[in-house]
Design a protein around this nucleic acid. Structure first.
Length: 99
DNA sequence: CACATGACCTAAC
DNA sequence: TGTTAGGCCATGT
């Protein structure tokens, strides 16, 4: 496959693509993996600008607080939540990490 | 080139 | 414990 975009986005998307099923990673973790721990903001941006939505599991990327954050897909954040639940990561239908 | 935006994070209040 | 304010980075206009 051929990813088209900035070098930064390519790194981010590749890292996200490495995330196994049933596992999630935080934006900060991704930023740290690409060597720019301070670029978590840009990482989230790259995910939002990600044109390979069905190709890259960007729905497996959540916030460090435990909240899902958001989703640029069709169903929006709800679809993301649904996907995570389907993968067995979330057992509850709310975005409450304490629960 | 300067300003504005966003699926964020941390520290304070 | 919940909310607010400031900071940080890559992109787009």
């Amino acid at each position: 496959m051929k990813l088209v975009g900035t070098a930064f986005q390519i790194k981010v998307w590749k890292e996200i693509n490495k995330i196994p099923k049933g596992r999630v990673k935080t934006y900060k973790e991704i930023a740290h993996l690409i060597g720019k721990p301070k670029s978590y903001r840009a990482v989230a941006n790259a995910c939002g600008k990600n044109p390979y939505l069905p190709l890259i599991p960007c729905h497996r990327v959540i916030r460090s607080d435990g909240y899902l954050g958001g989703y640029s897909g069709y169903g929006g954040i709800e679809e993301k939540r649904k996907l995570l639940i389907d993968e067995g990561f979330l057992d509850f239908k709310k975005d409450d990490p304490k629960k």
